[in-house]
Amino acid sequence: MKDREYMRDPDSSTSGTHIHEKTEDRADVRSVSRNEERTESRTEKGSGSRNRCMRAVLALTVFFIFLPVIVTMLWTVTGRWPWPSLLPESYTTRTLQELFSGSSSLHEILRGSVLIATIVALLGTVIAMMTARATEIYRIRGRQIISWSAMLPLIVPGTVFAMGIQVILIRMGLGDTVAGVILVHLVAALPYCVFIMTDITAAVGSNLEEQAQILGAGPVRSFFDVSVPQLLPGILSSASMAYIISYSQYFTTLLAGGGKVKTLALVMVPYIQSGDRALSSVYAVTFVGSALIVFFIFEALIHRIMRSEES
């Protein structure tokens, strides 16, 4: 019995220890889980505060972008806004009347500006696409010189370039014409278009086009079926860039168009220079708004092309 008791004792003591250990274990587990909870809540707190911080930065950024836009929009209908008033003292529709029925017809100017900028966007992108293909895909001789010279208009100051090219345009019989203005805008926009298209053409490469041709597609078909969908983001960027460059040209338009070709920038700049804030603002809002509308149309068109490609 003694033996048994002796035998049992250590057993029971061991089991007792085990139970004890287990309870300790459980306690440990609890403490660990509590620790984890704490860590989790700390991480949540950490990520929460980081999120709040990010949100604050985002809100500030949006605020600083939209504040001038809101102020400009307010100015469009402001009669008097003396310092230090937070809001205008009086409102007017004078500016809108001037915009819609003033000396220069807004409708006509907008149509001219959009037409010129759209043609420049189209031509610029097509020329840039061809240049990029020549230098990146066909790897023609002297391609580095071509790539470099495509950037030349950036080096020459705009005023110098405009005065020089005006002489050439007059000699060519293109002085004071829309075609002449388009040509000059094109030269200003091309470096950016070529830069954008070269990058994306190099990234897309010619492997897929080669594959399409191996499967029986002709060169033109393989380009439109396979390469163009890949190039679309670049085409959109290049067209938008060319559009906005053409849309905002003032000095070159003035010289090449001789004042006969009227664009929104041409009409807007004198108002800005005159210091009539209300009129400047109404033109500025029209300028930005119309450019944005055209960008949305560009994007919608591209998406429609992509969808019809897929179907």
């Binding site: 492997n207 897929l208 080669e210 594959q211 399409a212 041709q213 191996i214 499967l215 029986g216 597609a217 002709g218 060169p219 393989s222 079926d225 396979v226 969908p229 890949q230 992509m306 490609e309 897929e310």
Partner: peptide, 17 residues
Amino acid sequence: YRRGTVIVFQDMRLFPN
């Protein structure tokens, strides 16, 4: 595109669009 031969390349060259 007029040869009637087709190559399957190592990099597959499937059209992602």
